[in-house]
Amino acid sequence: MKQEPIIELKNVSYAYVQNYNVLDGVNFRLYQEDFLGLIGPNGGGKTTLLKVILGLLKPDSGEITVLGTTPKGARDNIGYVPQYAKIDLDYPIDAFQVVLMGLLGNKRLLSRYSDKDKKRAEAALKEVGMAQFKNRQIGELSGGQRQRILIARALVRDPKLLILDEPTSSVDPASEENFFKLLEQINKKAAIIIVSHDVGIISGYISKVACMNRRLSLHMGDDIEGAIEQSASTCDIEYIGHRLSHTSHNNSHKHD
């Protein structure tokens, strides 16, 4: 079955400082059913790539299409969960208001949130299993709960593409499995890109892995463990098998 990609990057380059490309001729396609793990060393360009896809940065050269249009034009259909570390944990706001924030950009200036908006926000909270924490201040929630609120804020927009930047750092190991179960649910209706430096955690759930180290190498296929292992070697990061006791046969893995 041949599908149109929902994201397509052709030869995209970006440099913060002239002549030092953080993205160097990146080619990349993402399809509707994909659950992509984006890994790579610090400074390798993971966040830069996301910013280009989100239209926060304009590439110096190359072409980029997101959901059939420009990155900025596609924003209405993108759900974004920013890096958790940037969130002020003590911010005086409750969970419901955070989720409603997802709809603020769609509102006409000065118009109030409608009953429909509130219903949508409640539905998003329910979807991530946080309905009962609606009126809690975010400072009173655990790391994993707060992360779910941020996902609800992205989901309230009914995105076709969900982008999560380092979401696993705040999720404790006990709730990790539930967290990824939730993402698998979401993946039924939206493509997912998840950035992580911790390959071990995500390996059991993703269907594709891409390694971003100035250039991007994409691996996919049935043998995701093998693909990750290969990515890890191109990516210059250490990968320790998470679920399988994978003995070393570095050159024999399938990948198409």
Binding site: L56, P82, M101, G102, L104, G105, N106
Partner: peptide, 21 residues
């Protein structure tokens, strides 16, 4: 008039930018 916008951009600029605020 703009209270919600101020509260949102102070909380999370990146997210607001991505939702076209």
């Amino acid at each position: 008039l703009f209270f919600r916008y101020f509260l949102a951009i102070i909380f999370d600029e990146d997210f607001c930018e991505v939702t076209n605020i």
